[in-house]
């Protein structure tokens, strides 16, 4: 089945992906946020907070947004 995944960490990522039936929110998080802890992210499904074991459904929109994003100037890579 197909869902929209939005990872607002780092460079940002938003795209539709194919996932297996029965995939949970926690599993998606582990796939897309390799080195992060769930506690450090706002995790939303269809714009609502959800429990980690919630099973994703066709057409869902899941987003991961870091709770801490350091502001300040950065020198762009050439």
């Amino acid at each position: 089945m197909r869902i929209l995944v939005i990872n607002n960490d780092g460079g940002g990522f938003a795209d539709h992906v194919e996932i297996a039936e029965g995939t949970t929110v926690q599993e998606m998080f582990q796939q897309h946020v390799k080195n992060g802890r769930p506690a450090d992210y706002l995790i939303r499904v269809n714009r609502q907070p959800v429990p980690a074991d919630q099973v994703l459904r066709e057409g869902d929109r899941i987003s991961f947004t870091p709770t801490k994003i350091e502001g300040g100037w950065t020198i762009a890579a050439s």
Partner: peptide, 24 residues
Amino acid sequence: CEGDGRAAIRGALRQGRVLDFFIL
């Protein structure tokens, strides 16, 4: 000064993801 959030904020604005933009 967006810092580490720059790319994600610009991405959200480019794609019209209004909720993500304000949360970021």
